[in-house]
Design a protein around this nucleic acid. Sequence first.
DNA 1: CTGTTAGCGCATTCAC
DNA 2: GTGAATGCGCTAACAG
Lengths: 330, 330
Amino acid sequence: MGTTTVSRVINGGARVSPKTLVRVRRVIEQLGYMPNQAARVLKGDRTKTIGLIIPSIADPFFSSCAEAAQAVARANDSLLIVTASHNDPHTEIENINILVSHRVDGLILAPANSHSQAMRDLLNRLSVPVVAIDRPVANSSIASVVTDNFRGARSATQHLIDHGYKRIVCLTGESTLFTIQERIRGYRAAVEAAGLPYSLNTAIKDYKSAEYAIESMLAGANPPDALFTLKNSTTTYTFEVLQKKNVQVPKTVALLGFDDFELASAVRPSISVVQQPVEEIGRVAAELLFDQLLGRHNTGLPTRSKRTPHVLLETHLIKRNSCGCTPMIS
Amino acid sequence: MGTTTVSRVINGGARVSPKTLVRVRRVIEQLGYMPNQAARVLKGDRTKTIGLIIPSIADPFFSSCAEAAQAVARANDSLLIVTASHNDPHTEIENINILVSHRVDGLILAPANSHSQAMRDLLNRLSVPVVAIDRPVANSSIASVVTDNFRGARSATQHLIDHGYKRIVCLTGESTLFTIQERIRGYRAAVEAAGLPYSLNTAIKDYKSAEYAIESMLAGANPPDALFTLKNSTTTYTFEVLQKKNVQVPKTVALLGFDDFELASAVRPSISVVQQPVEEIGRVAAELLFDQLLGRHNTGLPTRSKRTPHVLLETHLIKRNSCGCTPMIS
DNA sequence: CTGTTAGCGCATTCAC
DNA sequence: GTGAATGCGCTAACAG
């Protein structure tokens, strides 16, 4: 018995006589033998694992990304390791280190803080390819797959303007996040271009704060006729408040949210939203990563694109009822 | 320079002079050096990784489990690797093999098929501890953390009976799953004990089929006065249909669902549900796994419990409006 | 076709 | 306090 022969059998069985091949295979089967990846890795080969760091596994947005990325990883015979940063820069760096220790072949991450110098340095030092999702890494040459939050928010706001609303208020929380800032920019661009007042409240962090904000506004001198909510939780809190207060939507005040969610079409009125191509983000990011990993660049592109692609994905406005539209389908 | 010294520094720095310690640490920092886990593993130690196999990462139920399990893993200085089986026995076995190849220290999984002989054999051959979640592995000594689906469904049905409903119909899909079967048993036990008719429809797999089923029932000779839906998607499809048909809930027909979901309290009427202790499942499973891993059993228990614990977690009935209750809080 | 050898990076043992 | 030697399981290179 030669270990080499066994090794050959495991790796496809080339240059092994059919007899031994069968024999070895049977023994392997019988013993339930599994090659030790650690040893393979140690030999210097790829680990066939890639890492994904997202704020939370339980967040539907990111878990859908993860699912899509995993599919691509599988297709490339790799394992996806998902860890959660909870948007904490410290935890994030810790996660990067853990994954690097485990010698992942590449890394996808949603940077907790786009501007963290420490993380940028760390990332630049890595010898494996990195792709950022959802948010780019500022001032760096790291590849990224990001939604066009600016245009998405601008055209959504424009849609409200087209409906004739004059006092469109923008509601959100977590305004330090890159994505939220971009959406704010988009909202601002649209209202300013239309000569409408700019009104932003970034203090919505739970049901209570939403209730307080909306109550004051509606009772105020110049109540809004439309609400543009920049993130999922803000949208649902707002919806709940409006419902509880028996505010007519969209009659008294219209509602449009950024980011789609499961029951947006099931509630009454159904909620119009800006939809992000969630799965696509995960899929494209993983594809980009494997492109870098396997050294295949710019396939099919006539122009030699730069080494680090920055993919900007388009959003899609889903017109339901809460904005004032009356689509055919329920 | 001795590699041993460096090794010592990395592993806590015992028996190293303060000077060298500082010096080595600085160089490590400067080089961005990370110990190669593969080599450590090869030395025979634990890999500090555990595997989790769930039907889908994007499923809120399981991703919450995963999040909780990851927290426990971190606390035990380990990495959680999550993979998706899509409820396919073949993919599941493939995933087990991949994780075993990567030498995970333990495994948590939601068995796609509780009765698969092949999987049972494979699992028994493994040298690492295994914990099943959501569904047990039939006829095996594998530890499990499962919700008490039977009692949850029975008491939910009983609650509908207490409300005075006489024709309670049970709706679901995926009736081959262990959890669903248990819930069916619970429903059956309750209606039969009350001398009420047993009526089950397991064909709800999408909005269309829900619409068809509900339409026929309501138009039929003996329409139901309450609907008990056994899984999340069935509940939302049913809710959508009832809403679209302008059926009064709970007046014309009441609704009670198994499994809580994000907007159950936000919709009108708010939907009463049987809530599972989702995070607890993930947490307890991971804790059980590390107990086995670290050889600490039966802590604090006076009676010597058997080696493979089977934890049965209680459900909680959340009374909202759709069942006919009128809770104080919105 | 098959076996022998060497080395991947680390932690452990044992001398110094 | 420190360092040299050893072996974990595997595969690539090289004989037979």
